[in-house]
Design a protein around this nucleic acid. Structure first.
Lengths: 128, 128
DNA sequence: AAGTTTTATTTTATAAAGTAACAAAATTCA
DNA sequence: TGAATTTTGTTACTTTATAAAATAAAACTT
């Protein structure tokens, strides 16, 4: 990996970790531009792609935003619980969903490569 | 429900059903504009929102596209298996994932309202 | 180490996806 | 019918994401 790539990744992961809410690519961009005004969207997207590929961050597909991975980075099935009220996200390891997920697609000989599991609802605090 | 809304919904569902691939909102729009040139994005998005609310269509969050529901329309957990090679999508009823999904978020008193489960991989035909 | 090739990164520009806000039309119901 | 309500259409725009060309960095070669 190139040095600069690694630095950018650490940078962006730091931004994500410093936030208690998921951030969109453009929110991250804005944040980075405070210190480096010349950064453009492709830089952010490329770096986020690297981070998600490595499992160091997750993209919340249903809300187009990103969170740092707070689990082991090697979960086979990350489960992201999104609060629709306050916007907070909790991450869980859904590895033991795998047998049932596999059973569902097995008859079709589907070969799974990546699982996306997101739950929308209300977090403990907001539900009460 | 208003008559025109019902017609539009049937219209768009028909377009989706006639396709063997998921369609983006703008692909649907283009298709509709063949016969009704004045239709604009909000019409399509509004109608798609109604259809997905009713469970008559699903939005594939990870690829920003839509498919008609080919299950019962009342599945608690639709599971969509997306082939990364040919783009085909198979729908399964993942209702029996529910206990384990619930167990994951229970300790946090999270109240789930909607589950999103998508699997990326290779379909039987493309995997061989 | 200098020059050459390869690969990665930045820049520019634009494409694609989605929505806010208001205007017009249809529907409801007194 | 006609005033109130809701739905639909229109315009314009915002947000999200990426293609492609230009530039810079790293790696290789001798």
């Amino acid at each position: 990996m190139r040095k600069r790539a690694a630095l950018r990744q650490a940078d962006i992961l730091g931004v994500l970790e410093a936030s208690d809410r998921p951030m969109t690519a453009y929110q991250i961009l804005e944040r980075l531009q405070v210190t480096e005004p010349d950064i453009a969207p492709p830089t952010v997207y490329r770096t986020l792609a690297a981070l998600t590929d490595q499992g160091r961050a997750h993209r919340l597909e249903s809300i187009k935003a990103f969170v740092p991975c707070r689990c082991s980075h090697v979960e086979s099935v990350p489960v992201l619980a999104i609060c629709e009220d306050c916007g907070s996200v909790d991450e869980h390891d859904g590895s033991d969903l795998l047998p049932k997920l596999t059973a569902l697609t097995d008859q079709n000989a589907f070969r799974a490569e990546r699982h996306i599991v997101e739950i929308h609802g209300l977090c403990g605090t907001c539900a009460t």
